[in-house]
Nucleic acid binder design. Structure first.
Lengths: 231, 231
DNA sequence: GCCGTGTCAAGAGCAGTGCTCTCGTTTCTG
DNA sequence: CAGAAACGAGAGCACTGCTCTTGACACGGC
């Protein structure tokens, strides 16, 4: 594909792009996306702030790059967590996935907030983010898929109706044709529950009640596995 | 308590404080918290920006005031939704509460983001926000409480252990002694699921799959009612 | 080897921000 | 009524994202 060796200029460009992202990520981790400043990044790198615009046309573009990297980071974490489990133990995979995502979120709270908190710019969710963003939910569905045929939801799944039935079937057909639309929908419910729970924990909504939330998290992961019907 | 008629100055102060909040809320609704600007508020009100600091010592304080108002708004919405249902129909109350919260969130997406999205300032969650913030979850628990004795979780509740058992018992004792710690914990799970689902919808994580999310929402509300065991 | 072309960093500058301080004026209170 | 407290306005500081221009450097074709 792309040649391994390009001109010195292009190599320098690539290197500087990485350097900028690295420093931006550092500042993001410390101060949060809100206070991420292009000028501060440039200052830290010893370059003029205007020079930075040769690499990222705007602050939002830099943030978008960080968002994509973050999605890929948490996505890879989820995928490897699943891969490290026995292939015939969906429940262990589920556990590992949830705990992996939580560990990543607690290590990078500001990046988590960037992904699942308030969208920063003018609602611009560029197309190139959707693939990385789908990695975690896809990994989650793949776990359910691996349990197809052995799924035993503790409570009967309510039948889907109307538009929802179509939506769920369309998604199931594309991603996990082996599992029924009802169970797949439960997987989505569990995914949104996971994110809601993590947001509560990281954004401070548990203070004074379920903080620290470690055991609450463990318990809920188990309950949601029951909910989906993982063996 | 406080005298009904104070000096003209105090009345003007109160009125201007409301006016400032009103204009700030207007800008918040249009632009989002990110772009809320003290100077723009002052400009719109025809006053010097410095004068505004006589009423709110900092931008974060103004935001905190808006946060409290928003918590109270959604809290009241949830409470009236419950109150308008038959007292002996917990499931209808649950439905009304969830749909009321969602309706409020869709009417005021930026205020929702202010409450449940990324925390804005340096993690400052002042003490005076916790009471308003608790109104929705308290209303939710009150619904479960009203069903005490008739609760029939479709799936058996996993026993709580260790720290979680203590946390849940402490909360239950203070709020809903009639319901067991296990069911109460399921209520908290449902609450976090509700917020996660709303965040997904409002922050654009459902585009291309479960958008529009109306029927998904309806379905999930029922499933979570089953999960908690509401009759 | 050279030289035009295009890329690059840097500086100045614009419009905007939160916030502070000072300075007269107005309003309340003892 | 006089002193005190509260008030609005203005200037100013340090900062932001972003644009435009200028001059230097590296690159590829001749």
């Amino acid at each position: 594909m792309a040649p391994v060796i390009r001109t010195a200029r292009e190599r320098a460009r690539e290197e500087l792009t990485l350097e900028i992202k690295r420093e931006a990520r550092r500042q993001l981790a410390v101060e949060g996306a809100q206070r991420l400043s292009l000028r501060a990044v440039a200052r830290e790198l010893g370059m003029a702030s205007s020079a930075l615009y040769r690499y990222f046309p705007s602050r939002d573009d830099l943030l978008t790059a960080l968002i994509i990297d973050a999605y890929n980071a948490v996505g890879e974490r989820a995928e490897t967590a699943v891969a490290e489990c026995p292939a015939d133990d969906p429940r262990a995979q589920w556990r590992a996935l949830c705990h992996g995502v939580r560990a990543w979120a607690k290590e990078h709270p500001h990046e988590y907030a960037l992904l699942f908190g308030t969208p920063v710019p003018g609602y611009a969710a560029p197309q190139e983010t959707v693939a990385p963003a789908a990695r975690v939910p896809l990994a989650l569905i793949s776990v359910v898929r691996g349990a197809a045929g052995r799924l035993e939801p503790a409570a009967p799944v309510r039948p889907l109706r109307g538009v929802l039935a179509e939506q769920a079937s369309a998604v199931a057909e594309q991603i996990a044709p082996e599992v029924g639309a009802g169970v797949l929908t439960r997987g989505v419910v569990a995914w949104s529950q996971l994110v809601g729970m993590l947001s509560f924990e990281l954004f401070g909504h548990f203070v004074g009640t379920f903080e620290p939330a470690d055991e609450f998290f463990d318990h809920t992961v188990e309950e949601m596995a029951d909910f989906v019907g993982l063996p």
